[in-house]
Design a protein around this nucleic acid. Sequence first.
DNA 1: CTGAAAGCGCTTACAG
DNA 2: CTGAAAGCGCTTACAG
Lengths: 348, 348
Amino acid sequence: MATIHDVAARAGVSPATVSRFLRGQRVRSPEAIQAAVDELGYWPSAAAQSLKSGRTRTIGAVVPDITNPYFAAVVKGMESVARRQRYRILLANSEESSEQEDEVIADMVRQVDGVILAPATEQDQTPMHVRDADVPMVFLDRDLADGEQFDAVLVDNYDGARQAAAHLLGLGHRRIAAISGNQDTTPGRCRRDGFVETLAAAGIDIRPDHDLIGDFREASGYQLTMVLLSLPEPPTAIFTANNLMTLGALKALHDMRVDIPAQISLIGFDDLDTGPLLRPPLTVIDRPMVEQGVLAMRLLLRRFDEQYADDIPRRIVLDTKLVERASTAPPQEETELPGRRTGRTRSL
Amino acid sequence: MATIHDVAARAGVSPATVSRFLRGQRVRSPEAIQAAVDELGYWPSAAAQSLKSGRTRTIGAVVPDITNPYFAAVVKGMESVARRQRYRILLANSEESSEQEDEVIADMVRQVDGVILAPATEQDQTPMHVRDADVPMVFLDRDLADGEQFDAVLVDNYDGARQAAAHLLGLGHRRIAAISGNQDTTPGRCRRDGFVETLAAAGIDIRPDHDLIGDFREASGYQLTMVLLSLPEPPTAIFTANNLMTLGALKALHDMRVDIPAQISLIGFDDLDTGPLLRPPLTVIDRPMVEQGVLAMRLLLRRFDEQYADDIPRRIVLDTKLVERASTAPPQEETELPGRRTGRTRSL
DNA sequence: CTGAAAGCGCTTACAG
DNA sequence: CTGAAAGCGCTTACAG
């Protein structure tokens, strides 16, 4: 591979001049240098550049799970902004594990100019690594206990859950269950709090056996829904705190031949591409996805600008929106579940 | 940030010895060095390492669209193998554009040890860049015209489409439409060929107005389905050549209040997470996803092993599988479409 | 086993 | 505007 010396030799100038030309400075023989670059197919070595300059033009993106459509969309948003500014993206999955996240970040933090992180939990050590490396970081979707020191792009999880609860209450539901996410994550906690407290404010204390904690994965949505269905008095409505658990709940309800929304209403946090096409079309709390990635990347790149490098942390909180489709309805007078063997069944 | 010199000074040895210790060689005072590393929180500079060694322990992954669940799953598979071997992943979206792909690859090829590429089209210049950089490459999902010179992980697209056609023929359909993908991609061509030729072998020449070419995106699935529905004689069954176009077709059929499968059967290439939960549950041609990413990464890492570096290209072709659900059924005697205004309507 | 030294490919004050 | 030179942080023959 051609080096800057090869280009210099061919163009009859010094490597320093080639370097200057490449960074857009005015030089005496731009044509000759450009010709040499073209003929040799020269492309600078990123390793050498970053060793020298201390900048890598690379951003680390760490998400719990890239196959979650929410995070895939977020990464796409990040990528589109980054590419336009000639930054690259180093992608890592933490698989919802703080340990894996810490490891991955420790490894990448030395070779990126900044990090965008959707933390696995609120307790991880990440900020230490990142602060040691003195690299800007933006939190996305989730926050840390001492997160206020960093830029962040979040949504109003509490209010989103409040909207969900208000919607179910408005329909007349009283026996309402929640399948929440990990309580050591911000969205996990805020969504549960927003939901439970809104019920409480309406005079309804959620029953302990209707107040279930999952882990944001599909399997836990499925299993906990099964638990709810096996209760002596199952709920007439279920709130699931993210897209994957909503899918799990939907599968469980299908498997048990529960009629949605006639027998049980279902409302989830996060929309899905297929949301309108599902049986039934899902009522959800929607939030921006690609846009969150775009905003996070902009916030991060902004920190590379001397002018803003030391600004106080900016925290962008986006609104959620209730999307009413067909999975929620007023409760039936008398709720019969097929699992209860009341004689009546209904096929979907 | 601490450098190897700092560690050496603190441990009372030379940088060379620290370097050797770090790579697992036997040294005289391992404890002192380890202590110095720990106390200083030392982590080697990746830039310096790769400048010196010529290896980056980074793999470039280029996919047309990370929000396509298929590619998200594939990237996840790649990532899990890479992480275990302490490789990192540089992710780029080509957005189904050869130009963007070439640009992105030219930029990353100097700073990765290898590339896994799902090419946007069969005509792009990518192999040139990659060959110039003398970096191993593995093709994934899609092939290039001269792709035989590279490792590849593919599925038997032709046979998958054949299965889809055979399934519809077996149900008794004769007026069958195909919404294919870009014909300058391998899957686009093979799936159309497999489908059309299987029909032809059964004595059915697909009608030109039923033989539509889309671009693998949801919008084209939607639009082309609308076109089919507006035909004087619409098909009784539709084959869509990938997951996103299937979703688009499903939306169009819903919007036009077409009863699936009573009025029109739908079969798609690629399964979806929500496949079983859709209205109706989709009959699809399924193929491995995460597994393809895993295999591609293994093939690539294998090339870094001197022993296999010069082996002839390995091409892994995986089988597809028909998953029968509820979106396909025998054609109705008399097909009425609501769009045709026959007086009857049916709500879903 | 160890250390001094060269060098990977750049960038950037410095002197001209 | 230009070039010689130093140096970014490592690794690795080389000599001991």
